[in-house]
Simulated scan of single mutants.
Amino acid sequence: MATQKTAEPRVGGVALRSLPKVSLHDHLDGGLRPQTVIELAEGTDLALPASDAEALGEWFAAQADSGSLVEYLKTFEITIGVMQTREGLTRVAREFVEDLAADGVVYGEVRWAPEQHLDGGLTPEEAVEAVQEGIEQGEDLAEDAGMSIRVGQILCGMRQSDRVREIAELAVAFRQEGVVGFDIAGPEDGFPASRHRAAFDYLAGEFLPVTVHAGEAAGIASIRSALLDGRALRLGHGVAIARDVDVVSREGEEVLVQFGDLARWVRDREIPLELSPSSNLQTGAIAHWGTQIEDHPFDLLYQLGFCVTVNVDNRLMSRTSLTRELAILAAAFDYDLDDIEQFQLNAAAAAFLPVEQREELIDLITDGFAKRSRRR
């Protein structure tokens, strides 16, 4: 039987994949190709739940669609398991960049936790070098294919471990060799940023940009700690900030709201929210509002003036891409090309880049959207 081709997602007659995009929240160990997982697992004692790429991809998606961040994170035991050698890390990073470029991403930040990739004997420094080698190979291959992309590393400390300060120092040591920022990841509930205040103090003293996973599996207290203890310049997900906004009344398209102090601060300071629609649905991050994409507070936050960005979180687990996430939002909230462009401009302005390079990125996006729009 012939396989039916899926229509290319379009908004206003323009193919979303052709538009220049910025990806800020994208995990390396959540972006593997299923076939790569299978090939890297060969010769190891890692047992896979499926032996062909399509079935394995379906397994990851099914397991991740649990409504629980804790259960969602268990799928990473397999991907991390095949990323324990220099060759494995380099290959995964190279393909990661190639896949971003094929999706129209012109700037991306890839986050990962070096401490989780040392079982094969690598040092943290060697792991970072291996990932950087793969990133540069991917950038070169993209350029050879007529595409332009730049990717920076965000090193993650695991918030439940005692190595956060060590990884913070590693990030600073490699800031001139591909690392653009720092994050803490892992189980959010019960492990606030305040547990690692000393590490964040150190990063602040070194002026290294920080984003913090917050407001995904825990409430607004998690966001407060990310801002006060972590000095976060961006919020990883940050969905829970909508719980500090009280919708007083709705009349047609008119919505009267009352802001809590934290929500007003995040909005007024334009602190970027790294929202990931499909992932937020899978992990139960939007359970307070409902169980469908239409229930996601993304549109409420956007209409209220929050600095929203669109991200994939984990492409393998959500079987998604940035193009798909944008298409999902456009369908759910009737967004047009101007809205899609605004999300990219928000992300470009929030990138952990020098201001001159952010301005160049903004110009690249503006020009790219203008050219595609004229071709409609």
Score class of each variant (00 low, 15 high):
residue 246 D to R: 13
residue 241 I to K: 01
residue 233 L to K: 11
residue 262 L to N: 10
residue 199 A to L: 03
residue 230 G to A: 05
residue 211 T to W: 09
residue 246 D to N: 12
residue 263 A to P: 14
residue 231 R to W: 13
residue 210 V to M: 04
residue 248 V to W: 13
residue 249 S to H: 07
residue 194 S to V: 06
residue 206 E to W: 06
residue 235 L to V: 11
residue 191 F to V: 08
residue 248 V to S: 12
residue 215 G to L: 02
residue 191 F to Y: 14
residue 196 H to E: 04
residue 213 H to R: 11
residue 235 L to C: 09
residue 197 R to T: 11
residue 229 D to N: 14
residue 205 G to H: 04
residue 230 G to C: 03
residue 201 D to I: 02
residue 197 R to H: 15
residue 251 E to K: 15
residue 256 L to W: 12
residue 195 R to I: 03
residue 262 L to Y: 08
residue 257 V to R: 01
residue 237 H to G: 03
residue 200 F to M: 07
residue 226 A to T: 10
residue 242 A to Y: 00
residue 198 A to F: 12
residue 249 S to F: 06
residue 254 E to M: 12
residue 202 Y to K: 08
residue 228 L to E: 14
residue 194 S to Y: 00
residue 241 I to A: 00
residue 241 I to S: 02
residue 191 F to E: 07
residue 194 S to D: 11
residue 230 G to T: 02
residue 214 A to N: 09
residue 248 V to K: 15
residue 226 A to K: 08
residue 244 D to V: 06
residue 252 G to Y: 04
residue 207 F to R: 14
residue 240 A to M: 11
residue 236 G to H: 01
residue 221 A to L: 11
residue 235 L to A: 10
residue 192 P to E: 12
residue 255 V to Y: 06
residue 228 L to D: 13
residue 255 V to G: 03
residue 242 A to P: 05
